[in-house]
Design a protein around this nucleic acid. Structure first.
Lengths: 228, 228
DNA sequence: AACAATATCTTGATCAGTCAAGATAAAATG
DNA sequence: CATTTTATCTTGACTGATCAAGATATTGTT
């Protein structure tokens, strides 16, 4: 007879990645499933099943096979800590180290799991306890409070004047392209007649420059309406 | 019948640590053995045997079971890259991030394996392509050239005037203590009559302060004689 | 040289994380 | 509701890194 010892070891970076994935999807859609997590982590569903059983034991998620899957308070808090690390690191890499906003995501994805609390603290202080990362994502505070960024995906916006408040951070090519076209956080522009049939949006910047971008890309850019 | 496929995957951080260990011992004593490596990495000899067979296949070490063990040129170069990373990171953590020289070793031990070449480059430039880390260890240059630091272990020094040029970086407590007593890199002092029987050395700093330290600790501090 | 001590090597096992592929349950469709 | 599709779960296997413990070689001693 085999005795199930369960897990004795600590939350490795693997665990942190699972928690992050669940959090991300809960934030995006209000809930998640084994399949979604598997897709996000590029792993088979069976692997996620196994992992969720472990995380349930550790009380990091609440997992009822085939029924429901969600973070516990503890799990959410752990996930938010990782997100905080990730975003502080991204901002650090851009502001202090002078890296480009299109290349910091990968690096932060690794560093978020290994940097000491002490170093993270230095970073936080050095940056002046910032509230948003280079892509406009809010940085959870020390207590795990996460500000909401309310913004419209550009592909759903009507014609009018807007300011860019956030851009999805995981498409490095898009970020590079946006940068080349002056479309960074805080940039303001006018959106012309949304001709959805063509799948192309046209933007006019204050410099007069016009930029076209596809709905696909526009879906990654989040804006808020401005009066001017 | 089982076909031996060998290793298909890349040099993980584990491999880097083995290479570093071999390098360190070759530098310290001119050669190394399975047992020494095992001791340094806190691993059983059998584990080292297995690893060395793999590294031999990868042409990173030259391993003749029970006969000899040494780095190949390629292995040495790989090891020096890791050392370069380690020392640049240590200096970065002290100079830019304001961490204490007694607490950067652990952090660098992890970061050395995960930081991108790009980020390392920024660090190198930001620090002005430095030649020595906070503990006085030389930083290998981009091409893997490693300057020699010639210095005497303090426990072998005669009475006279000396300057501290290097301190072993792996004893955090000692580093903390040295710092508290003003004994940092570049500090000059007079060493009094080495009374070896008692196992204690006495140092007089320019401030007039006298400090005693044991031979054990003194062995970790490396000095060069000065005229004054 | 013969024996003891030490260093090294081999073998079988374990652990975390994963996949493949088949089993099962739930949801959607007619 | 019966059937098909889809989602999920289970099982057995594999990989890299490791250890324990026994086997073997090398070295040192008398």
């Amino acid at each position: 007879m085999k005795i199930e010892l369960g897990w004795l070891l600590m939350a490795t970076s693997t665990v942190e990645n699972y928690l992050k994935a669940v959090l991300r999807q809960e934030e995006a859609t209000g809930s998640t499933t084994v399949g979604e997590v598997a897709k996000e982590l590029a792993v088979t569903p069976g692997t996620v099943t196994t992992m969720m059983k472990h995380l349930d034991e550790e009380k990091l998620v609440d997992y009822q096979p085939r029924k429901s899957l969600s973070l516990t308070l503890e799990g959410r808090s752990a996930a938010l800590k990782v997100v905080r690390r990730h975003r502080l690191i991204e901002l650090f890499l851009v502001q202090i180290m002078g890296l480009d906003w299109s290349e910091v995501h990968e690096e932060a994805e690794i560093l978020e799991h290994v940097i000491s609390d002490r170093l993270l603290d230095r970073i936080d202080v050095m940056l002046g306890e910032p509230t948003h990362d280079p892509h406009g994502d809010p940085i959870p505070d020390r207590d795990g409070n996460l500000a909401q960024v309310e913004a419209t995906p550009l592909d759903e916006a009507e014609g009018g004047n807007y300011r860019i408040v956030r851009v999805s951070d995981d498409d490095s090519d898009l970020l590079g392209w946006l940068d080349e076209n002056g479309l960074t956080i805080g940039e303001e522009f006018a959106l012309a007649h949304p001709n959805r049939a063509a799948g192309v949006l046209e933007i006019s910047r204050s410099t007069g420059a016009k930029v076209q971008l596809g709905v696909q890309a526009a879906g990654q850019v989040f804006v808020e309406a401005i009066s001017a």
